[in-house]
Amino acid sequence: MKTVLSLSVNGTTRDDVIPDNMLLVDYLRENIGLTGTKVGCDGGECGACTVLINDRPRHSCLTLAVTCQGARIETVDGLSRDNRLSALQRGFDEKLGAQCGFCTPGMIMASEALLRANPKPDEAAIRNALAANICRCTGYVKIIEAVQFAAEIANEIADEALAS
């Protein structure tokens, strides 16, 4: 069976005919070429495929694309605005939260969901928000620092916007 899937991906509305058994991660990577989202496991183990569905972090490898009818999907490919790195992208870059970079898209999207809900998270909140995301390079130390840095600069950016 096939379905016409209407949704928004990184701010662009789309209509695509897809098989009903297609996973969201395959739709994103194979059908529309957004390969920023990664597959690191055989389903729900590692979190590398984390995307935002209506602002909430979800494993795209455990989500059927058809269940995203009318949803707002965001992936790491769409986080930069006006060709500027987002606060989290800067944090993971400048604080070395990314070494090999394979878990990074999922880490950044899970962190993005956290910061939208809780702009000033403490360390425990960061650990809880990233508990479903595995990294094999960093020991997580610099990932926590990257998120903390991003929260700081995001708040500064927000303060500046208010002041102007």
């Binding site: 490919d77 790195l85 989290l88 870059d93 970079g101």
Partner: peptide
């Protein structure tokens, strides 16, 4: 920071499975 850091944080870095 790593010279290829921004590629990794924006999803532009191409890993073997990303070629199609």
């Amino acid at each position: 920071p790593l010279v290829d850091g921004p590629e990794k944080t924006t999803g532009k870095a191409m890993f073997a499975a990303d070629f199609q």
